[in-house]
Design a protein around this nucleic acid. Structure first.
Lengths: 113, 113
DNA sequence: GATTCGTATTGACGAGCATCAATCTATCTG
DNA sequence: CAGATAGATTGATGCTCGTCAATACGAATC
């Protein structure tokens, strides 16, 4: 199972025993969400009217250093939860909402489909 | 926001900016899921025909020591994801599926409701 | 080309946690 | 009560990771 490639609805992991490899992979996906700074970053991007946010506008509201913000943004991009686009000196980030829905469906398929 | 007390549907955190305290709490909830041993334990309980599993039947399939299994089960119970019932010498565990659905709805409200 | 500015990377430090061995607690059975 | 068994707790260890200071990279401007 590759969490990052699952796209169709209703792939309920909790309706079949989970092997060690699959569990490791799914745990890695949740690990990305298990950090308050990353959740706040996603929240700020998700609530931007334009649908994207400049990295330069994320350091102050988060209250962390610039390298820390850059690190968390990279983790979110690597996980496929955010998309990065460079424009000149600035980096703009936008949501990839499908990834969240996939994790949701894995957890609670009965609630979604 | 108290993740463990939210019961109604559609409480989309990602449609409103997330404060540091709320983010910390939500991150803690995901941290519980961000471990392969705990995911496998939940998977085994969720797939039990009787709806409950004796702790004595979880040590061997997980391939971890008895104290480690006991530790993870306690974490899951404390998070409200599993319920524990003692019967004599044995401890039986069952799912509390509502908690998973709550996390799902927080993440991807549009997919569920 | 030199400077400036935004972002990414590197290295180091400290906290948190998954794990196990040893021990303790509780319950059942002679 | 004594022994046995299931589960929880304690203490220690090693690893992961969030964080920051310092630095490197890249693009725009002069």
């Amino acid at each position: 199972m590759d969490v990052r490639t699952i796209t169709r609805c209703c792939e309920p992991v909790l309706t079949a025993p989970l092997g060690e490899d699959d569990a490791e992979e799914l745990a890695s996906a949740f690990k990305v969400l298990a950090d308050p700074a990353r959740l706040r970053l996603m929240s700020l991007v998700a609530n931007s009217p334009s649908g994207e946010v400049c990295a330069c506008d994320l350091v102050v509201p988060l209250g962390r250093s610039q390298p820390t913000i850059s690190h968390h943004l990279s983790v979110l991009v690597d996980a496929g939860l955010l998309a990065r686009e460079r424009r000149g000196k600035w980096a703009w980030y936008s949501m990839v909402p499908e990834k969240l829905a996939v994790l949701c469906q894995i957890l609670a398929p009965s609630a979604s489909c």
